[in-house]
């Protein structure tokens, strides 16, 4: 397989016990692409995302990232994760560290920067997500939207070549969703390669290069957002989109 494709997910399957959660999932991304995974809860979106940085282990299929085989037993998982940023639905900020401490931990302890360098990098990443005035605040002192922006800054501080977003706005009050999406849009504009699981269809429509609809662990349909949202080929996709729209 000649590969100028940046991320290739090929026939990935995964089971939890007897239950199959991913069934031969395939899609590709080029550098600077934004791919959005959508689908009902339990469809395997988050699991698929976690297989890319091996927080979950796929049992079959292959994933190549920038020419490297992700699922190989020889893969250095810690190095892989250094290069792939992840943003969580529940933020998962380190509760005992300030915003600055959260963002600086990776550069300091994983990349081996000096304390001063790590601090400097963390400061600039927090400025990037609009939190220059909250450097010393602790997670419990921040709003959900601010916490999630710290989460994004924490991932960005590792200078990842791919960012994974696992329902980054699902735990937020509606009025706080905007500030997080705004930061994500800015990243898109900067050319970040992003794989996003979300229910924010307007975000998907606006920034995605490709939308992948998963149901029951299977790719039902994939395509550019205008096609998938306006003229879905599969009846299942249409039904899902209608249901989402009626809740919007």
């Amino acid at each position: 397989m000649s590969d100028d494709v940046f991320l290739r997910v090929n026939d990935v399957s995964k089971w939890y016990g007897d239950e199959q959660v991913l069934d031969e999932v395939s899609f590709e991304m080029d550098r600077s692409d934004v791919t959005v995974l959508i689908g009902p809860s339990g469809s395997g979106k988050s699991t698929m995302l976690r297989c890319v940085n091996r927080l979950a282990e796929a049992q079959e299929g292959s994933i190549t990232l920038d020419g490297e085989e992700v699922l190989s037993p020889d893969t250095d998982v810690d190095r892989l994760r250094r290069e792939v940023g992840m943003v969580f639905q529940s933020f998962n900020l380190f509760a005992h560290l300030s915003a600055l401490g959260n963002v600086a931990l990776g550069p300091r302890r994983v990349l081996g920067l000096s304390a001063a360098e790590a601090r400097e990098r963390a400061t600039s990443q927090l400025e990037r997500v609009g939190l220059a005035d909250q450097l010393e605040s602790y997670p419990a002192e921040l709003s959900g939207g601010q916490q999630q922006r710290v989460g994004i800054a924490r991932a960005l501080a590792m200078e990842p070549k791919l960012m994974l977003f696992d329902e980054p706005t699902s735990a937020l009050d509606p009025e706080l969703i905007g500030e997080v999406l705004e930061v994500m849009r800015a990243l898109v504009d900067e050319g970040m390669t992003m794989l996003v699981v979300t229910h924010e269809m307007s975000f998907a429509r606006a920034v995605a290069d490709e939308v992948v609809f998963l149901d029951d662990g299977r790719v039902v349909e994939r395509g550019p957002p205008e096609q998938l949202f306006e003229r879905p080929e599969k009846e299942r996709t249409g039904r899902f989109l209608e249901r989402i729209a009626s809740h919007d």
Binding site: R81, R82, F88, S90, N92, L93, F94, V110
Partner: peptide
Amino acid sequence: VDEGQITAGRAIGLSKLESIYYV
């Protein structure tokens, strides 16, 4: 300690022991 804490540590490339130690 919430399980997500160690997951977040692993996700930035800390090993399991490092995640336990630092997080």
